[in-house]
Amino acid sequence: MSKSASSVVPLTIRLLVVGLLFLLWIAMVGRFDAREWLVGLVLCLLVAAAAGDHLRVFAGVRLHPGAPLHFLRWFAYFLVALLKANLDMARRVLTPSLPLNPAFVEVRTSLESPLGKLALANSITLTPGTLAVDIHDDRLLVHWVDASPGTDLEAATARIAAGFERHLLGFLK
């Protein structure tokens, strides 16, 4: 995202952030209390106003009716990946010979916004055998534990990223 593009954050994005903050507040209060909720709403508005142009980060969110559904699908996919990652890691850790073949691989992404890349990097870090190490433009450097000699590194890693990307592109740019 270029700096000159827009320093003004769209109103919808501001409202989205206020909504998110308010949800957090409600979750922390934990029960209905008109006075507490009102104070929370005022604080959320203040925080969103004070954050100003920094809210530009959230411009990476795609706002459309299908977005929440895509988010839920990504989250389900992510939870399964996290579970698999742990079983895989448990197997590696507990095998006496430590079956590891680490290597660095580069993954290309079509997510353009910083928020999108962050979500992808976080997803990759919690996927079986992969750890996002660095981001340069549209390339993610990934540490992969299972690069056995002979496997097609690029193809295998691209597959890992593609699974997340498909879901992430539904609600992030």
């Binding site: 579970l83 742990n86 890691m89 448990a90 850790v93 430590l98 590891l100 919690l126 540490h143």
Partner: peptide, 29 residues
């Protein structure tokens, strides 16, 4: 159990990257 596995992973893994891998995933779950 998963936190324990993460701790074992931290001890057994050969280098920093692999330790981070074991540590992050296990402790998150």
């Amino acid at each position: 159990a998963f936190c324990l596995l993460g701790a074992i992973g931290l001890l057994r893994m050969p280098d920093v990257y692999n330790r981070i891998q074991a540590g992050t995933k296990a402790v998150t779950l």
